[in-house]
Design a protein around this nucleic acid. Structure first.
Lengths: 193, 193
DNA sequence: CCTCCACAATGACAAATGATAATAAATTGG
DNA sequence: CCAATTTATTATCATTTGTCATTGTGGAGG
């Protein structure tokens, strides 16, 4: 049973014990290996994914082969390609695990049924959608700043990622090379000493 | 009467003639001068704005005084600080006109009333919200690429902005200096010749 | 235990971008 | 129409970032 899913939802809205019981049945739980794909570029995204355990990334591979990370997701976070899911068009993104873990997936239809059955979950969904939107806006403003400030903003906002993610993945999220990030970290270490 | 507002909505959803009649009463129309603010940093955003005529920008002023543009908006587009509007917290952004024009504003309450009265408008709102989200994601991927590619992606996506906006505003949107943009344009002009 | 591979750090050099300053051109508002 | 303001270009130089090559380290898996 996903205690985490329920507790994540109840951080934002109230659910009766009975509602909490009914929620997991709308999802499918699956164990996932490291490097396993939840979505591949060119596929139509059919699910919203809730990360029960582990860590993953959503990224595109551009024409030069460079991987640009749109988002990371860890325990208690959601991830999907919303545009592909809603419009049923092929996705430009890959979603792949960086660590093994457990993922709960829910289809568009099941999500709709869940909203109808438990309106508080729909309210929860709206709240986190708004947060996701605001997070993208913040991200855009970061990306308009020099690399050092981007990195510092990232670390300040998500300190737990600092130790958990490989540095070259962080670099791909910040839009810089791994070498540049290594230099920045070196510079910071020297300055603070 | 805002013919543009109605025609913009009916591009996405169907409205009866009678519904079309009732919509404008939910809005206030205001003429706006160049440089006029629709929202100032520190204020709580109280409206969604529909641009009937003219052009505006949403931006933050960072600690060094640099202005970073989050979004432009022209005829037929919406603009607001959604986070401030929904949470009733002070905005980090300014929204200011780049050209004189006419703006239709609607409060959160009136928007809710409009949704209840004409559900098709709520559907329309969901559709454009999804598009806005997808646009922010694309923007993030652009910003992870070199300046030249950012600029070319911008021009390809919004060719009409190219002639309408001052170049230094475009530069502030792309996260580069006006001088850099000037150089890039010069380089492109030489290459294509 | 060993090999292979992913990951990180570093140096040398090239390219891109920022900072500053000077100038010219275009536009705004009276 | 004119003055003031805004906008754009260009050159120079400093800084940042990218590219390429090399090395070292630690962990995964046979």
């Amino acid at each position: 049973m996903s205690q985490l899913l329920i507790s994540t939802i109840t951080q934002h809205v109230s659910l009766t014990a009975e509602e909490q019981q009914r929620i997991p049945a709308f999802f499918e739980s699956l164990p996932v290996r490291r490097h396993q794909f939840l979505l591949r570029e060119g596929e139509i995204c059919r699910y919203e994914f809730f990360i029960e355990k582990g860590c993953c990334r959503q990224y595109e591979t551009d024409s030069t082969g460079k991987e640009n990370v749109l988002q990371f997701s860890v325990e208690g976070w959601w991830i999907t390609d919303l545009d592909s899911l809603l419009t049923e068009t092929p996705s430009r993104f890959n979603i792949a695990m960086l660590e093994p873990g457990v993922v709960w997936q829910i289809s568009k239809l099941q999500l709709e049924l869940l909203f109808n059955e438990i309106p508080a979950v729909e309210r929860y969904y709206r709240i986190i959608s708004q947060r996701a939107y605001a997070a993208l806006q913040r991200r855009i403003l970061w990306l308009q700043k020099p690399a050092l400030e981007r990195y510092q903003a990232f670390v300040a906002a998500y300190p737990f990622f600092e130790t958990r993610l490989p540095q070259h993945q962080v670099a791909a999220y910040l839009g810089i090379t791994r070498e540049s990030l290594s230099r920045l970290r070196n510079k910071i270490a020297k300055t603070s000493r």
